[in-house]
Amino acid sequence: MSAVLVVADHRQGELRDVSYELVSAGDGLAEQSGGDLHLAVVGGDVDRFADELDLAGVDAIHTIARGEEFNHDVYVESTEQLVESIEPTYVLGPNSVNGLDYLPAVANRLGRPLVTDAIDLETDGDRLELTRECYGGKVETTIELEGEAVVSVREGEWPAATEPGDASIEPFDVTIDEDAVGSTVTGFEEVTGGDVDITEADVLVSIGRGIEDEENLDLVRDLADALEATLSSSRPIVDNGWLPPNRQVGQSGKVVTPDVYVAIGISGAVQHVAGMKGSDTIVAINTDPDAPIMDIADYAIHDDLFDVVPALIEQFE
């Protein structure tokens, strides 16, 4: 039996989407290895989070009510002590900014190998095969290891688990050496133009260089309004100062996983694709049928956006 422990990710009172994806990733490993799936919720409103994550496949949820927000010392100690209690073969966490702030320390304390940013996982219960990208996504590699491991999984790579479950939910007592806590979170701030979080949108209308001129932005704003969607963009639009940085999708912007991503006049450079390829459905509107965006688009319209967008707005009037 090789149990799996996944650690949920939350911030400012809400579970992050990757928590549900971690359940899917962990459930896959537990199924393949014939073990139980354990889930840990550390900090915040742990009872509500536990209810929300009581999903099919999860056998046990351990709640650790320590603080409101992420603190890496608390996460490291909690995960370490849970691992000592459950003895899972695999520990899975998010490859988020906070995941990268504690999982390397967890692996270090446990003396386990660490693999970060996994995009696929397969196990026979003993040997784990992980897939990850190198060189900015130009190649994928597979890595194999025997036995125990700590793994961070890329956000948006696994489907979110949704089916209700029947897990046992119990508090787990941890002993935290307060003297060892050497960092203190003093607050949060939204970056400039923080009027919207495009990562939370169900539908994104996203524009690129093809929009040509700042004054043409009104056209896509009208479209976003008509679709009740959120407006986002590729990097050049933000570099030009036409939209604030919080609208930028991509490696240096936001990673988004909406239900539908409508890429309008976006060629699809790898840096942009990294931020939106996890979208459920991708629609590309572009005059160039050979644009790289077509490699990952599900649907395409090879036509001028200045003809298609007004026609689309009309469909919703």
């Binding site: 400012q12 900014v97 203190t184 949060f188 970056v191 939370e200 936001k254």
Partner: peptide, 12 residues
């Protein structure tokens, strides 16, 4: 952090 949020932290 993700989503255009910054965490302010003091580190010893």
């Amino acid at each position: 952090l993700e989503g255009g949020v910054e965490e302010l932290t003091d580190v010893e």
